[in-house]
Nucleic acid binder design. Structure first.
Length: 702
RNA sequence: AGCGGGAUGGGAUAGCCAGGAGAUUCCGGCGGGCUCAUAACCCGCAGACCGGUGGUUCAAAUCCACCUCCCGCUACCA
């Protein structure tokens, strides 16, 4: 938009959101890294100097908690995952120029420099807040280090959110009956002074920034609510040992405070670029040309480097609000674009690691599938912004149909025909039509990249192969070899040229397969080093017999994989690690109330007039969180009842459900609606009582 | 609840920002062709009036309003 088209004279940095070193990688993570890698490769294709950097996110309370559970240090715990990630990414052809982590020396230094800049610029304020504290262990308990009871719904809740109950976000100090996640000791709240970054200092700046930033619609629009409203101060410190020390004034009295992970996490983008420069030298890539601003007043000037962030759509605010403010406060450059990808689902349902409804990175590779197939599926499956569903069925369908049948088949039949009849590229000129078609493909590649239409970038070679199949079919060179050899040579020359163009254009999405095709054409080196317009240069006059680029995935394979996945999900459910129904998780920790000692007489029981009924209608009561208005047929008449079950049941499914109704309950009026009776239900989840058989409506409970 | 994103032939997806001849591609169905090629490839047909209701316009899948359903975010979780 407001930016100069790629390639620019400045270097670019492409980043992907840091993986949190807390668990194995699955296809959901991989989508982002593949997208970022493809963007970086495509930028290089058009001649943009580009560094692709990332690193592991090592800090934060979840890692501290999980490390404690395993009895290892947070650093050792996180490092293990860090190394796993560093090894896994290249296996998916995600090749970072530098992959660091937030706990390394570079990031500690850079982060502290940032914070000092904010302090010097008077953007940091101090405030007293309530923090949970474990007096027995002399331990502060920020964020998830404390758990207790949700003040809103009474469910067990973590310190930061009511994760099992009402899903509400909880402020520090809100959780009732707090206990330490680490020791289980009861906790108390204490006043504690913390540091805050005054985001409102950057309000005007952010408003201008969001207007000139490029990227996906969600990334450009979602932050507006915050940026155009009142910006709260961001608490940037935590009472923990694990993290980067708050630099403070002369180190006095601040040594027990570390920085909030969302402070040092994005700064790793800068640190990782620095490390890249340290390794290759400033002449090869100068991090300062990208990250620092030559002229403070010229943020949008042409001298600044191009920063492109690829993230998941759940961390937009952090990258489009906090991060630009952090950069600005330290005198750094701003992002040119933020690309927020959608989520990945499995077989039409949400991916769930606890239920093991996931396809793991290692699993995919262990099954022997080529990484480029996965990359293709993720990039070409749908637009970057929308959620994409992964299923082995679809995977096989797309690989077999689009890669094997279309792209692979075209290249194979063309090169094989060329090799058998001409020993390589026929001696003829490329026809004008084909030349123009390839030129169009190159133009579309560049245009799509400049608008961050990554899917369209990936579609270019496929569409070219489509054209190729059509072209070869229409001209039937196999009929011409005898009748019109010159014409046959011409057609095959065109086809070989198209195959070469495909190799160049498919490289960002399928780098390894592109190289394989490149080699089959008899080209030297890697297609990675070929410029985009080399797609039009003549291929070598001779090359060897080609091989099939992609192999069919058999139906039996897919059946196996589906079964494996289904079994795994079932196992995870049976093991009770998690359950099919959200609510069942509560059942695990459920402790029934102790029994009442007081006994009642049979006559007392007889006072309760309970009847079998059937729900006829169920509709929500406006302005109420829980209440629903039910009409229940109890044989002799139909009763209107108000019941607190709105959140706990799908009202649309209730009509037809048999229930037990206390008919002689005193009448009540709730939210202006009369309740004439009471529907019996069990527990906090209001599990409705029903009949086992088919007792007629109106039957008395006795 | 507020904000953001989405709802398109049987399934999956594009188009919407820059409104215009009853809409893309893939899978599936039907009918042809070809045989160089991995039962691949090519051509043709059937099938959606583009979540619902209104509005703007000569013209709307595309703009506006309201509604329904799904997903995300809502600031000191990562």
């Amino acid at each position: 938009m407001s930016h100069e088209a790629f390639p620019t004279d400045n270097p670019a940095v492409v980043t992907v959101g840091l993986p949190y070193a807390n668990g194995d990688l699955h296809v959901g993570h991989l989508r982002g890294y593949v997208t970022g890698d493809t963007v970086a490769r495509a930028l290089r294709r058009v001649g943009q100097q580009t560094a692709f950097v990332c690193g592991s996110d090592m800090h934060g309370t979840p890692i501290a908690v999980n490390a404690a559970k395993e009895g290892v240090s947070p650093e050792a715990f996180a490092l293990e995952y860090h190394e796993e990630y560093a090894e896994t990414f290249p296996k998916f052809n995600v090749e970072f120029d530098n992959y660091g982590h937030t706990h390394d020396e570079t990031n500690v230094e850079t982060t502290q420099e940032f914070v000092r800049s904010w302090i010097d610029g008077d953007h940091v304020v101090e405030k007293e807040i309530q923090v949970a504290y474990d007096p027995a262990d002399d331990q502060w308990l920020p964020d998830r280090l404390v758990e207790g009871t949700c003040p809103y719904c009474g469910e067990d809740a973590r310190g930061d959110e009511c994760d099992e109950g009402c899903q509400r976000h909880l402020e520090p100090g809100e959780v009732e009956d707090p206990v330490s996640t680490l020791s289980g000791n009861p906790a108390e709240y204490r006043e504690r002074e913390h540091k805050f970054l005054r985001l409102s200092d950057f309000q005007d700046y952010l408003q201008a920034f969001i207007d000139r930033m490029d990227g996906t619609d969600n990334a450009k629009n979602q932050p507006r609510e915050w940026i155009e409203g009142e910006l709260q101060d961001l608490c940037i410190t935590r009472d923990m040992d694990w993290g980067i020390d708050y630099p403070g004034e002369d180190g006095e009295g601040e040594e027990d405070l570390v920085l909030y992970v969302w402070v040092d996490a994005p700064i790793e983008y800068v640190s990782s670029t620095k490390q890249y420069t340290d390794r290759v030298g400033e002449d090869a890539f100068d991090w300062e040309e990208v990250w620092t601003v030559d002229d403070e007043d010229e943020l949008t000037g042409e001298d600044n480097g191009e920063i492109v962030h690829v993230i998941g759509r759940d961390i937009i605010q952090h990258h489009a609000v906090f991060w630009p403010a952090m950069l600005r406060g330290a005198g750094y450059n701003e992002p040119r674009a933020i690309l927020a990808t959608g989520f990945v689902g499995i077989d039409g349902k949400a991916l769930s690691t606890s239920r093991n409804r996931a396809v793991w990175a290692d699993e995919y590779l262990d099954e022997g599938f080529h990484p480029d197939l996965f990359r293709y599926y993720m990039i070409n499956g749908s637009g970057m912004e929308t959620d994409v569903d992964f299923s082995w069925d679809r995977f096989a369908e797309r690989v077999n149909g689009e890669l094997v049948g279309n792209l692979g088949n075209f290249c194979y039949r063309s090169l094989l025909f060329a090799e058998r009849n001409y020993d390589g590229t026929p001696d003829a000129d490329v026809s004008d039509d084909v030349r123009e078609r390839i030129e169009d493909a190159i133009d579309e590649f560049e245009a799509a990249l400049n608008e961050y239409r990554v899917r369209d970038v990936g579609a270019v070679p496929i569409e070219l192969a489509d054209y190729g199949n059509e072209y070869i079919q229409r001209n039937e060179p196999w009929k011409l070899t005898d009748d019109d050899p010159e014409r046959a040579a011409q057609v095959i020359r065109d086809c070989v040229q198209i195959a070469k163009a495909i190799a160049v254009l498919m490289q960002p999405v399928m780098p390894e397969k592109a190289d394989a095709l490149w080699a089959q054409l008899g080209e030297d080196g890697s297609v990675e080093d070929a410029r985009l317009d080399e797609a039009l240069d003549a291929p070598p006059a001779t090359f060897d017999e080609p091989e099939e680029l992609f192999g069919q995935i058999e139906d039996e394979r897919i059946e196996e994989l589906n079964e494996k996945l289904a079994e795994r999900v079932e196992e995870a459910t049976e093991d009770g690690e998690d359950d099919a129904e959200e609510a069942n998780e509560d059942t695990m920790d459920f402790e029934p109330e102790s029994l009442t000692d007081e006994r009642i007489s049979f006559d007392d029981f007889g006072d309760l007039d309970m009847r079998v009924g059937e729900i006829e209608t169920a509709e929500p009561i406006e302005d109420s969180d829980k209440l629903a208005r039910l009409e229940v047929d109890i044989g002799v008449e139909t009763r209107q009842v108000v019941a607190g079950i709105k959140q706990l049941h799908d009202l649309a499914e209730l009509p037809g459900t048999r229930v037990v109704l206390l008919a002689n309950m005193e009448k009540a009026e709730l939210f202006g609606v009369e309740s004439n009776g009471m529907v019996l239900a069990a527990g906090d989840e209001a599990d409705l009582l029903t009949t086992h058989g088919d007792a007629p409506l109106g039957s008395k409970i006795q």
